[in-house]
Protein backbone atom coordinates (compact mmCIF):
# COMPACT_ATOMS: atom_id res chain seq x y z
CA UNK A 1 0.00 0.00 0.00
CA UNK A 2 2.82 2.36 0.96
CA UNK A 3 4.48 1.71 -2.39
CA UNK A 4 1.24 2.35 -4.31
CA UNK A 5 0.75 5.72 -2.63
CA UNK A 6 4.37 6.65 -3.22
CA UNK A 7 4.25 5.68 -6.89
CA UNK A 8 1.04 7.60 -7.54
CA UNK A 9 2.51 10.66 -5.82
CA UNK A 10 5.64 10.46 -7.97
CA UNK A 11 3.60 10.02 -11.15
CA UNK A 12 1.39 13.00 -10.27
CA UNK A 13 4.43 15.21 -9.70
CA UNK A 14 5.97 14.00 -12.95
CA UNK A 15 2.76 14.71 -14.89
CA UNK A 16 2.42 18.23 -13.44
CA UNK A 17 6.08 18.98 -14.15
CA UNK A 18 5.84 17.92 -17.75
CA UNK A 19 2.46 19.43 -18.61
CA UNK A 20 2.45 22.69 -16.64
CA UNK A 21 -1.25 23.17 -17.44
CA UNK A 22 -3.88 23.09 -14.74
CA UNK A 23 -7.08 22.98 -16.80
CA UNK A 24 -9.76 20.44 -15.92
CA UNK A 25 -9.17 18.37 -19.05
CA UNK A 26 -5.42 18.01 -18.48
CA UNK A 27 -5.82 17.15 -14.78
CA UNK A 28 -8.44 14.49 -15.50
CA UNK A 29 -6.33 13.00 -18.28
CA UNK A 30 -3.43 12.91 -15.83
CA UNK A 31 -5.47 11.12 -13.15
CA UNK A 32 -6.67 8.66 -15.76
CA UNK A 33 -3.16 7.82 -16.89
CA UNK A 34 -1.92 7.51 -13.30
CA UNK A 35 -4.60 4.92 -12.61
CA UNK A 36 -3.72 3.12 -15.83
CA UNK A 37 -0.04 2.94 -14.85
CA UNK A 38 -0.95 1.74 -11.34
CA UNK A 39 -3.12 -0.99 -12.85
CA UNK A 40 -0.31 -2.15 -15.14
CA UNK A 41 2.18 -2.06 -12.26
CA UNK A 42 -0.12 -4.21 -10.12
CA UNK A 43 -0.62 -6.69 -12.92
CA UNK A 44 3.13 -6.95 -13.46
CA UNK A 45 3.64 -7.26 -9.69
CA UNK A 46 6.53 -4.81 -9.64
CA UNK A 47 5.36 -2.65 -6.73
CA UNK A 48 7.68 -3.66 -3.92
CA UNK A 49 10.78 -2.59 -2.04
CA UNK A 50 12.91 -3.28 -5.13
CA UNK A 51 11.26 -0.85 -7.52
CA UNK A 52 10.84 1.72 -4.75
CA UNK A 53 13.63 1.36 -2.20
CA UNK A 54 12.01 3.62 0.38
CA UNK A 55 14.13 2.17 3.18
CA UNK A 56 17.24 3.68 1.57
CA UNK A 57 15.92 7.26 1.53
CA UNK A 58 17.71 8.45 4.64
CA UNK A 59 21.08 6.87 3.96
CA UNK A 60 21.28 7.49 0.22
CA UNK A 61 22.32 11.21 0.17
CA UNK A 62 25.58 10.62 2.08
CA UNK A 63 26.48 7.76 -0.25
CA UNK A 64 25.65 9.87 -3.31
CA UNK A 65 27.95 12.68 -2.14
CA UNK A 66 30.78 10.16 -1.71
CA UNK A 67 29.99 8.62 -5.12
CA UNK A 68 30.08 12.02 -6.86
CA UNK A 69 33.49 12.73 -5.33
CA UNK A 70 34.68 9.33 -6.54
CA UNK A 71 33.27 9.93 -10.05
CA UNK A 72 35.08 13.27 -10.33
CA UNK A 73 38.41 11.75 -9.19
CA UNK A 74 38.24 8.82 -11.61
CA UNK A 75 37.17 11.15 -14.42
CA UNK A 76 40.33 13.19 -13.89
CA UNK A 77 42.45 10.02 -14.02
CA UNK A 78 40.84 8.75 -17.23
CA UNK A 79 41.04 12.14 -18.97
CA UNK A 80 44.71 12.37 -18.04
CA UNK A 81 45.30 9.00 -19.67
CA UNK A 82 43.32 9.98 -22.77
CA UNK A 83 45.33 13.11 -23.48
CA UNK A 84 48.83 12.38 -22.20
CA UNK A 85 49.79 8.76 -22.02
CA UNK A 86 47.28 6.50 -23.67
CA UNK A 87 50.01 3.93 -24.17
CA UNK A 88 50.41 3.59 -20.39
CA UNK A 89 47.00 2.01 -19.85
CA UNK A 90 46.86 -1.45 -18.34
CA UNK A 91 43.48 -3.00 -19.14
CA UNK A 92 42.63 -5.81 -16.75
CA UNK A 93 39.73 -8.06 -15.97
CA UNK A 94 39.01 -9.72 -12.68
CA UNK A 95 36.30 -11.39 -10.62
CA UNK A 96 35.54 -9.50 -7.43
CA UNK A 97 33.66 -10.84 -4.43
CA UNK A 98 30.81 -8.79 -3.08
CA UNK A 99 29.35 -8.77 0.40
CA UNK A 100 25.83 -7.43 -0.20
CA UNK A 101 22.96 -9.68 0.83
CA UNK A 102 20.04 -8.21 -1.11
CA UNK A 103 19.55 -7.79 -4.85
CA UNK A 104 19.07 -4.04 -4.47
CA UNK A 105 22.46 -3.73 -2.81
CA UNK A 106 24.14 -5.79 -5.50
CA UNK A 107 22.60 -3.71 -8.26
CA UNK A 108 23.60 -0.46 -6.56
CA UNK A 109 27.16 -1.73 -6.24
CA UNK A 110 27.37 -2.89 -9.87
CA UNK A 111 25.89 0.39 -11.10
CA UNK A 112 28.30 2.41 -9.00
CA UNK A 113 31.21 0.44 -10.48
CA UNK A 114 29.99 1.17 -13.99
CA UNK A 115 29.21 4.80 -13.23
CA UNK A 116 32.79 5.58 -12.22
CA UNK A 117 34.74 5.84 -15.50
CA UNK A 118 37.64 3.42 -15.68
CA UNK A 119 35.71 0.42 -14.39
CA UNK A 120 32.83 -1.46 -16.03
CA UNK A 121 30.96 -4.36 -14.45
CA UNK A 122 30.59 -6.96 -17.15
CA UNK A 123 28.81 -9.81 -15.41
CA UNK A 124 26.96 -10.07 -12.09
CA UNK A 125 26.25 -13.56 -10.92
CA UNK A 126 25.57 -14.73 -7.38
CA UNK A 127 28.19 -13.20 -5.11
CA UNK A 128 30.67 -12.26 -7.79
CA UNK A 129 31.10 -9.37 -10.21
CA UNK A 130 33.38 -9.56 -13.25
CA UNK A 131 34.96 -6.14 -13.63
CA UNK A 132 36.90 -4.75 -16.57
CA UNK A 133 39.18 -1.84 -15.70
CA UNK A 134 41.22 0.59 -17.73
CA UNK A 135 43.97 0.64 -15.12
CA UNK A 136 44.87 -2.27 -12.89
CA UNK A 137 45.26 0.15 -9.97
CA UNK A 138 41.53 0.85 -9.98
CA UNK A 139 40.89 -2.91 -9.71
CA UNK A 140 43.15 -3.01 -6.65
CA UNK A 141 41.21 -0.10 -5.20
CA UNK A 142 37.95 -2.00 -5.75
CA UNK A 143 39.40 -5.11 -4.14
CA UNK A 144 40.39 -3.07 -1.09
CA UNK A 145 36.63 -2.68 -0.80
CA UNK A 146 35.76 0.81 0.36
CA UNK A 147 32.85 1.10 -2.06
CA UNK A 148 31.74 -2.42 -1.16
CA UNK A 149 31.71 -1.53 2.54
CA UNK A 150 29.73 1.66 1.96
CA UNK A 151 27.05 -0.08 -0.12
CA UNK A 152 26.75 -2.87 2.46
CA UNK A 153 26.29 -0.27 5.18
CA UNK A 154 23.62 1.34 3.02
CA UNK A 155 21.41 -1.73 2.92
CA UNK A 156 21.42 -2.46 6.65
Amino acid sequence: MRHTVYLSLMLAIFWLLNSGHFSLLMISLGILSIFFVLYIAHRMDVLDHESQPLHLTLKLPAYLVWLIKEIILSNITVVKHIWFDNKAISPAMQVINISQATDVGKVIYANSITLTPGTVSVELEGGKITVHALLSESLKKLEAGEMDRRVTELEK
Binding site: I72, V78, I82, P117, T119, H132
Partner: peptide, 11 residues
Protein backbone atom coordinates in the same frame (compact mmCIF):
# COMPACT_ATOMS: atom_id res chain seq x y z
CA UNK B 1 36.74 2.77 -25.51
CA UNK B 2 33.81 2.11 -23.24
CA UNK B 3 35.66 3.86 -20.40
CA UNK B 4 36.21 6.89 -22.63
CA UNK B 5 32.50 6.96 -23.45
CA UNK B 6 31.86 6.79 -19.70
CA UNK B 7 33.61 10.14 -19.26
CA UNK B 8 31.25 11.89 -21.65
CA UNK B 9 28.22 10.16 -20.21
CA UNK B 10 28.79 11.00 -16.55
CA UNK B 11 30.75 14.11 -15.68
Amino acid sequence: RMHAAGVTDTL
